[in-house]
C-alpha cells in the first residue's frame, strides 16, 4: 500500500519539476518570433544606412510610431486627449461586455437547466446568431439614436449570443455521473446546481467569454465608424482619411493591447478559478 502512495507522489513531483523548464523553452520561441517580426519591420522601413523599402506613407518606422504615440499623448487628437479616446472606447466596450456577462451567463445557465426556458429563448438567440451585426448598425442608429447606447448595443449584439449559448452548452455537458453522485449523497436540487452544475460549467463559460473578446474589439471599430467624434477606433478611421498611417498604427496597437490584455486577464482568472479543468 505504501508503495502505491509513494509512487504516485513521485509522479506528482516529476510533473511539477518539468513544467517550468518547458514553459521557459516555449517563452524563448515566442520571443524569437516577435524579435524576427520587429527586425523585419526595422529593415523594411529603412532604420539604418539604407533607404526604406516601404515608404512611411504605407508603413512608418517603429521609431516614428513611438514618436507619434508620445505626440498624441501630449497633444491629443482632434481636440481630445488620447486618454479620453481610450476611455470612451473602454466605456463602450466594457458596458456592453459586462452586460453580456451579467445577463448572458445566468440566462444561458437557466436555458441549460430548464427545458421551457430553453424553448423560449434558444430559437430567437440562434436565429440572431448568423445575422451580420454590422448590417444592423444603421437600424440601431435609427432606433437608439446616435449616442453611446446604439454603439454599446452593436458591440453586445454578437457577444451576447456567444456567451449565453456557451453557458447553456456548458450546463448541458456537465457529466450526468457527477450529478447522480451528488444526488445519491443527498444533495437537493439547489445544492446540485450551486455545487456541481455551476462549477462544472465554468470552463465552458470562460471559453465563451474569451472567444467574445476579439469579436467585441472588432465590433468596437464598427461601432465607431459613424455618428461619433471620439474613441480609439474612430481615431484610427479618421487618421486613415488623412493618410496619417503612423496614427492609424498607434491606434491599432492600442486596440490590440486592450484585446490582448483582456484575453490574458481572463486567461489568468481561468487558470486560477478552473485549475481542475480537463483533468478528470
Amino acid at each position: 500500500m505504501t508503495d502505491v502512495y509513494s509512487q504516485s507522489e513521485a509522479v506528482l513531483d516529476k510533473h511539477d519539476e518539468k513544467r517550468p523548464r518547458k514553459r521557459l523553452n516555449d517563452l524563448w520561441l515566442t520571443l524569437a518570433t516577435f524579435s524576427g517580426l520587429l527586425a523585419a519591420w526595422l529593415i523594411a522601413t529603412g532604420t539604418g544606412p539604407w533607404d526604406p523599402i516601404i515608404q512611411p506613407l504605407f508603413l512608418p518606422s517603429p521609431a516614428l510610431v513611438i514618436q507619434t504615440f508620445f505626440q498624441l499623448l501630449e497633444n491629443g487628437f482632434q481636440g481630445k486627449s488620447l486618454g479620453q479616446h481610450v476611455g470612451i472606447s473602454l466605456y463602450r466596450f466594457s458596458t456592453a461586455f459586462i452586460f453580456c456577462i451579467l445577463i448572458g451567463v445566468p440566462l444561458g445557465l437557466l436555458m441549460g437547466m430548464n427545458r421551457r426556458v430553453r424553448a423560449i429563448f434558444e430559437p430567437p438567440i440562434q436565429a440572431i446568431r448568423p445575422v451580420p451585426k454590422i448590417a444592423l448598425l444603421p437600424l440601431f442608429l435609427i432606433w437608439f439614436g446616435i449616442g453611446d447606447l446604439s454603439k454599446i448595443i452593436v458591440i453586445a449584439a454578437p457577444v451576447f449570443p456567444i456567451i449565453a449559448i456557451s453557458a447553456m452548452q456548458a450546463v448541458q455537458s456537465v457529466s450526468r455521473m457527477k450529478i447522480q453522485a451528488a444526488q445519491s449523497l443527498g444533495a437537493s436540487r439547489w445544492t446540485v446546481f450551486a455545487r456541481i452544475v455551476l462549477p462544472a460549467s465554468l470552463p465552458g463559460i470562460f471559453t465563451g467569454i474569451r472567444l467574445s473578446i476579439s469579436i467585441a474589439v472588432t465590433m468596437l471599430v464598427a461601432a465607431e465608424l459613424t455618428a461619433t467624434s471620439e474613441g480609439i477606433a474612430w481615431m484610427a478611421l479618421t487618421a486613415a482619411e488623412f493618410l496619417a498611417t503612423n496614427i492609424v498604427i498607434v491606434a491599432v496597437v492600442i486596440m490590440a493591447v486592450i484585446g490582448f490584455g483582456l484575453d490574458r486577464l481572463f486567461w489568468l482568472l481561468e487558470r486560477r478559478i478552473v485549475h481542475w479543468s480537463g483533468k478528470d
Binding site: 453522485a181 456541481i196 465554468l202 481542475w276
Partner: peptide, 25 residues
C-alpha cells in the same frame, strides 16, 4: 451510497470537500 467506476469525483473540490459533501448535503 453509490460508488461509480471513475470520473465521478468533483474535481473542483479537494479530497476533503468531496468526502464532506454528503454530510453537508
Amino acid at each position: 451510497g453509490v460508488v461509480f467506476q471513475q470520473g465521478a469525483l468533483f474535481n473542483w473540490m479537494t479530497v476533503l470537500e468531496n468526502v464532506a459533501f454528503g454530510p453537508r448535503a
